[in-house]
């Protein structure tokens, strides 16, 4: 089972290396990772999708890193989750209309058109990106690249299971 966690860290050089090193040392697996600045310039937020049953240890080991400020594990359905994807699909002139019609349903934007391919940009919930890929697979996917997932807890009273920092 995959879990989505947001890790708020001090915005210091090497903090990503520390997290990656800890995951390697503890034999945890990262499925995807996105790092970026936050509303506070002294903080960065890392959104991670992690595999495996060891969530409690992952959260505790993240907290052991001196630069970790807060770890939030998102409850499914209680966070806004987004990914961005670029997909290049085989699209000869005969099937182009059909493909564009399908893309339209997913609000996928054609961002590049070649002699025999179209490249789409899709932004949205991870499941939606997966569905779009499934449809496009029938035409033939030439290349695909996906960002790490980003997530933000919904603005409701108890939006996510927040684990209190103790070390």
């Amino acid at each position: 089972m995959q879990h989505v966690i947001s890790v708020t860290v001090e915005n210091k050089p090497g903090v990503l290396a520390r997290i990656a090193s800890m995951f390697a040392r503890r034999d945890f697996n990262i499925h995807s990772l996105a790092v970026g600045p936050t509303e506070d310039p002294t903080r960065s937020r890392i959104t991670m999708v992690v595999d495996g049953p060891e969530m409690e240890q992952i959260v505790k080991q993240l907290y052991k890193l001196v630069h970790t400020i807060k770890v939030v594990e998102h409850t499914p359905g209680e966070a806004i989750e987004r990914e961005i994807m670029l997909v290049r699909v085989n699209a000869d002139t005969l099937r182009r209309g059909e493909i564009l019609e399908a893309a339209n349903i997913f609000e996928a934007k054609a961002v590049d058109v070649g002699a025999s391919t179209i490249t789409f940009e899709v932004v949205g919930e991870p499941a939606r990106l997966a569905d779009f890929l499934e449809i496009m697979r029938t035409y033939g996917i030439v290349a695909q690249v996906k960002s790490g997932r980003i997530a933000l807890a919904k603005d409701i009273k108890s939006p996510a299971r927040k684990q209190k920092k103790t070390a």
């Binding site: 409690e56 240890q57 505790k60 080991q61 907290y63 052991k64 103790t166 070390a167």
Partner: peptide, 18 residues
């Protein structure tokens, strides 16, 4: 234990005390 990560690492306790 003073280190929360030690608690439950090998054996899940009935009463954890950090």
């Amino acid at each position: 234990d003073v280190d929360p990560a030690e608690i439950g690492k090998i054996r899940t306790p009935d009463i954890p005390i950090v």
